[in-house]
Each structure stands twice: as C-alpha cells, then as structure tokens.
Design a protein around this nucleic acid. Structure first.
Lengths: 151, 151
DNA sequence: TTTTAATTATTAATACATGAACTAAAAGCG
DNA sequence: CGCTTTTAGTTCATGTATTAATAATTAAAA
C-alpha cells in the first residue's frame, strides 16, 4: 500500500477488477462477453439505435463497436439495417432471440447487483455513487471546454 | 441518464475514460503505453521484482504481463533474469535507460495528477478516495472468504 | 524416496482498446 | 449549383484482456 495503490486511477481499476468477474461469469453462461451484454442492455431499453449511439451509451469506442456488433449479428442476436433517411447511419435491431434473452439474463444480473450493493454498507454506497457522478460531470465539463478552445 | 448509466460499474468505467487519456498522452510522448508505464512505475519504487509480483502490483494479469515485459525489454528499458534460488521465478530489472526515464516522466505525471486533483473539489476528493478504498477492502475480503470456502 | 500436488512463467485463441487514416454520404456555404 | 467541411461508419496496426492449457520447477505427502 503506497502512493501508487492509493491513486485515483488504481483505486478505480481495482474496484472494477473486484466487481466485474462475478458479472462476467453470468454473461459467459449465455455465451456473451461483457461488451456484448452492454450493447444488448442498451438495445433492450430502446431498440434500433445507430452504431455511434450505441458506442456512446456503452462507453465502447466506435472501432470496437463494429466488431462487437459483427459478433452479435453472427450469433443471431441482432441485425444491421441502413437508415432510409440518412444512408450513412447503421441502425442495430434485436432479433427475436436477442429479445428473448433479456428475461433470462436480467434477473441474474439484478441479483448480482443487489448482492454487490448489499456488501457495501448503505452509507458508503450513496456517497460513492454521488461522488463519482459529480466527478464525471465535472470532468466532462472540462473536456467540453477545452474541446471548444482547441479550434 | 438512466439506471444503466448510474450503475457503479458504468460510473467507474466512465471516470477512467475521462481521466486516463490525459495521462496516456504523456506516456505516449515517451513511446510508452499505459501498462508499460505502470510496470516502470512499480520498478522505480523497487527494482528486480518477480513477474507475478509485477502483475499483482500493476493489476495486469500474468499472461498480459509477459507481453508487456517483452516489449519493454525490446525497447531496452528492462531485462529478465532467472532467480538463482528458485529457477521458476523471472526477475525484471531496469536498465540504465529505464532508470533514467523516471526523472523525465514523473514530473509530467505528477503535474497532471495535481491538475486532476485540483479540478475536483477538496471535499469530494477525500470522500471519493476513502469510499473507494473501503469498497475495495471489503470486496477483497469477500473474495478471500469464498476462496477459502471453495476448497 | 517416489508420487502427487502446487507454483511460476509462458503460449494459444478469441475478443476488445486505442489512435490514425479512409470512404461514403450529408450539410453548410459562397 | 459546385465546393468545402462534417459526420457515420469502417479498416488498419499495435497492444492488451481473458480464459484455458502447458512446461518447468519446487514443495509436500505417501
């Protein structure tokens, strides 16, 4: 335990390292990777999104998203359709099998999440989510600012 | 902004996505990747560590670490040496060039880190680091427990 | 001891991350 | 309208993540 271990980035990485394996085990049980699940998770909420919308909502970069959607399509869980109005846009739609998967995966994921929350301590949980949300909002503001400056 | 975006994992991923690009730009200026820097950062603190020690300290898995050390060695920044006492163990040592890099990189990284800290708000910073440290300690405990149970 | 188990490092296969460059289509503009 | 600039999606090159399997060595048990 030293400066490096106590740095914000390493604390964040460590938290994810501790948290995600449980979830990945669930996804793996359905032949899904974490990223594939994230895409489905977002499509279950609203179907037919553009590829860049998916990238934005899942925090998966556009170049990576191409491959993720490819593999989801190869698995028969989604399909690509060109938008009529704007032919640059590729919309991603769930297939029947992709839609059916929701009710099988979601309960397990919700249970694991409740389990995680239960293992934290009610006070810390709220504090943590709040502090992270403010951190992210602040950093995102900074990014938008020096994006405007760099023109 | 919905359940998914407010989930702990996505908040953590988002924070790293916002934080790390600034640091990666610094590392890139010296021909280093983030993971390569992490290994050097740990070796600068104490040289000659075993590969699994490095993996543990950097949160990089052993299979990935093999490649990271390969590329660091190819760049002439570290070298491998078999341990005498236990010939399974590979110790990684800094070369002269690897050692010299520290005083060039560290100031820039420290400055970026101070900058990050400055952009957060003194209260939130302490709260965040504290809550994350407790979260990680708690989750690590749980892991150790059901590691013992699974025997 | 001889066998068995555990540990360290590595390889292999597949999937994703990152940053740069490139194509095609659409929007903005003189 | 022709021309430039944006935008959406993709490809490419390199590096890393993840899980499973393997080789070499050491430690522990029979």
């Amino acid at each position: 335990m030293n400066d490096f271990d106590r740095s914000l980035p390493m604390l964040l990485y460590r938290a994810l390292d501790l948290i995600m394996p449980r979830f990945r085990a669930i996804f793996g049980g359905f032949g899904l990777t974490e990223q594939q699940w994230r895409v489905l998770r977002v499509l279950w909420q609203r179907d037919g999104r553009a590829l860049l919308e998916l990238a934005d909502a899942t925090l998966i970069s556009a170049p990576s998203m191409v491959g993720v959607v490819d593999r989801l399509a190869r698995s028969g869980l989604v399909e690509r359709r060109r938008s009529q109005s704007d032919r640059r846009v590729v919309r991603v739609f769930l297939t029947g099998r992709g839609r059916d998967l929701e009710e099988q995966v979601t309960p397990l994921v919700d249970a694991a999440y409740a389990d995680l929350r239960g293992s934290v301590g009610e006070g810390d949980w709220e504090v943590l989510l709040g502090a992270l949300a403010r951190l992210n909002a602040g950093l995102a503001d900074l990014d938008r600012i020096d994006e405007v400056v760099n023109r």
